[in-house]
Nucleic acid binder design. Structure first.
Lengths: 348, 348
DNA sequence: TTGTAAGCGTTATCAC
DNA sequence: GTGATAACGCTTACAA
């Protein structure tokens, strides 16, 4: 309490209880208090008790900013994700954040909306906090971002996509393979006229890889790909409706449609029903993402479930291993390939 | 480049380009470079150009940790939210983060899962980063959290709930009023036996306020409240199913049910259909949240839409005004009451 | 408008 | 096991 008066005359950080205050109260040196927090086992029980008491009495909260500056490694991890409120990434963020915070690390979050420019500015800002690690989504970055990531002395994890030839840690799955999976599933069901509807969000490049998997698989089966591109940047639900209405007007009509994600598929589902189609009898529909509503639709939506939660958990684990916060033998595993699961429901 | 060698012998922060490096290259003083970033208008064009060039040439990224320590106010804002992946809060987070980052502030995020202990540890960790502001959800905190928030010299915003008698900035709505709104709507539709199903997540205290609004309104109408409590902490979708199956077995059966949120309502909707009920003819159903799937259900779900995005935006705006980053005349508005919107669809 | 000097609160280094 | 001292990279206060 008496410290308050003393420090209140200072220009900045007025009134804040510092390590020095604790040290004075506990009658030990500042460095011992520092050790009490960072390597408690190196402090003898008697000192530990005195420090503990002083910390309690003063309500001391360590200043992580100062610690970060002194040690050049803040207990903070930056993550840039296309969007926070989408159901897929939200689970990844949640799992990542929870795993980190269990080990005393905090999450610095920003969204890029699939824009390389926004990603770049987020990465730049994050680097200023000298983060313990940095997580970015997919492997599409601006040259400046690439440069910063390469030169910064910070472990980088790329999630969502899996791209073994790249330098950063990879935790993700093969989007190309997802397109193959979906297409094969429909081929096995006997469909021949299979269309693919792209995402309306222009920057979603991973979705294009799924499309390419579809194209390749169809060609291998001796069939002609049929890609529909919705109006750029219209709302996904709306884009799905638009695509559905356009495609069922064609003659012959497709037997099955793969949508770039579940939002598009849901819009299409409702549009199809409104048009009097009996699904999946008249037309099979597949999505991607296994959004929470997928099982609530009628017919329920056949889709591919990305390992969202697993990606978040595993990315956090690898980061923590890299930082030595979680024990391991040998090197941190750089390549982490996960799988999407095909969820067969009623719509296809 | 020659700096690299010089600094590489240093213990920490090896190789990092610093303000001093830029100053040396631009042949100005360090403080001018600092001003270049923080008050560019105070630096003359010629100097500005030289500094600009040096920054580019060296690829300088300001060290925000050092800046934060020196100025005792980091450009970082902490937010504690019950959960990140729920559709409601996700929109709040997204809007909050976007508005902040547009003004150069970063978001430090943690989830509490409605646990006061987890909230407390998150707040403690955040305070260590000397954040520019702190955002917490609702007004239910542990005493220790209250103490930290009160003593920390940081603007605090409480979102989601609206509680004018509390000291922190309030941005939210009246949950009690939501219960009233839902109940009145059903009463006006002519229903008399109206039940309420609580949330299965035990810590969701705001949901209990909505329940109390329902109880009060029903009593005022001379009717008896009928509250169903699902098994603690079972998955919400499942809890809705459970509640529905139990309630439709009663004689007489309720004419309408209000659910604590849309997840519960969706589970109930499917259970009702499976049981052969024609909704809403046999039974009216209302949810809360207007989750994305609400309009995709059959029948589509009548629900109340909380101002999720608006809360995030407004909270960010008030924070920025408080920090002087956004201009305003007079004081920052402390009380910000928003409204839920009743979305009348097919289910009630 | 520009510069100098003195911290901000912690941890690394090295000595005891 | 414990402590004195010097950074860490920046901004505030004050001076020119």
């Amino acid at each position: 309490m008496s410290q308050a008066k003393e420090s209140s005359r200072k220009r900045r950080g007025a009134g804040r209880v510092t390590l020095a205050d604790v040290a004075r109260t506990a009658e030990v040196s500042a460095i011992s208090v520092s050790r009490f927090f960072n390597q408690p086992e190196q402090v003898s029980p008697p000192l530990r008790a005195r420090i503990e008491a002083a910390v309690q009495a003063l309500g001391y909260v360590p200043n992580l900013v100062a610690g970060g500056l002194a040690s050049a490694r803040g207990r903070i991890v930056g993550m840039v994700i296309p969007n926070i409120s989408g159901p897929i990434f939200a689970q990844t963020i949640q799992a990542f954040s929870d795993t980190l915070s269990r080990h005393g690390y905090q999450l610095l979050l920003a969204s890029s909306y699939f824009s390389e420019a926004q990603e770049e500015s987020a990465v730049r800002a994050f680097l200023g906090w000298s983060p313990a690690a940095l997580v970015v989504t997919s492997h599409f970055h601006s040259p400046a971002t690439e440069k910063m990531l390469a030169e910064a002395d910070v472990p980088v994890v790329e999630i969502w996509d899996y791209c073994p030839e790249r330098a950063p840690l990879q935790v993700g799955f093969l989007h190309h393979q997802v397109g193959v999976q979906a297409c094969r599933y429909l081929l096995e069901k006997g469909h021949r006229r299979i269309a693919f509807v792209q995402n309306s969000a222009a920057g979603d490049l991973s979705a294009l890889e799924r499309r390419d998997g579809y194209i390749e698989t169809l060609r291998e089966a001796g069939l002609e790909p049929w890609v529909f591109v919705p109006s750029a940047d219209c709302a996904p639900f709306e884009a799905g409706r638009q695509a559905m209405e356009a495609l069922i007007r064609r003659t012959p009509r497709p037997q099955a449609i793969i949508f770039a994600n579940d939002n598009l598929a849901a819009g299409a589902l409702l549009a199809g029903q409104r048009a009097g189609l009996r699904l999946p009898h008249d037309l099979a529909i597949m999505g991607f993402g296994d959004y929470p509503f997928a099982e609530m639709l009628l017919p329920s939506l056949t889709t591919l479930r990305p390992p969202s939660r697993e990606i978040g958990e595993l990315a956090a684990l690898r980061v923590l291993q890299h930082l030595g916060s979680v024990g391991l033998e040998g090197e941190v595993q750089r390549l982490n390939l996960l799988q999407c699961e095909l969820i067969a429901r009623e719509s296809a």
